[in-house]
Amino acid sequence: MKVSVIIDGQMVQIEQGAPIIDAAKKAGIFIPTLCYHEALKPYGSCCLCIVEVIQDGQRRLVTSCNFPAAVGMEIFTNTARVRQSRRMIVELLLVRCPDVPLLQTMAKQMGTGLSRFKTREANECILCGLCVRFCEEVVGVGAIGLANRGVDREVATPFKMASDVCIGCGSCTYICPTGCIKMVSDRKTPNLRSLKMGNCSLVPCPNSYQCETCQIEQEFFKDIKRVIAEFRSKGQ
């Protein structure tokens, strides 16, 4: 069933229960995100996509990537409260990952720096979970996962050892928004490249990532690359 919602003054028709970010897309309104990907189920961890919603007379901030649209809903994507909250998120992320260029650019765009919080960590991963979810939902392998909880939450392979199920497709390096998963060459045999992320490593590609000539499930990889390419072109 289609419902009408008002987003930044525009009336948009979308499927009832669809995430309200869809309405924004339809209205041509840009909403910044770090953990959202069309090919994946909504996750809602970065909260950068928050918008202000008035529903049943209540006004509140919700994450647009997973909040279901309903009849009579009014959405504001660029209020002072929204901008302030997004700025705080980027600011907090910059404390966590001060050297990630993407976050530095975002901070600049939002008019904030590193000034207010004095700590500086040396992380690169923002725990958006894109690599984990892509590996599981699209690639269908689940070689990397999440581990621990609270402030210790991290992306990791089981027992933090080289995964024995990784197929070396490289999707995680492509989808990672901060570039913290890297494809590195083996020092002894430069042709043999493997994926590294902090302490975890994934298996090297049996065909040294010569994907063009690769015979292993050629179609499968093509599909993945297409999804990623689409995503990247949209993000820019």
Partner: peptide
């Protein structure tokens, strides 16, 4: 207490608690 009991998924809670604690 919450720093280690938060699930650690969303940024406001995880990173916010960290700064508050600091």
């Amino acid at each position: 207490f919450l720093l280690f009991e938060s699930c650690g998924k969303c940024i406001p809670c995880r990173e916010g608690l960290k700064q508050m604690h600091h």
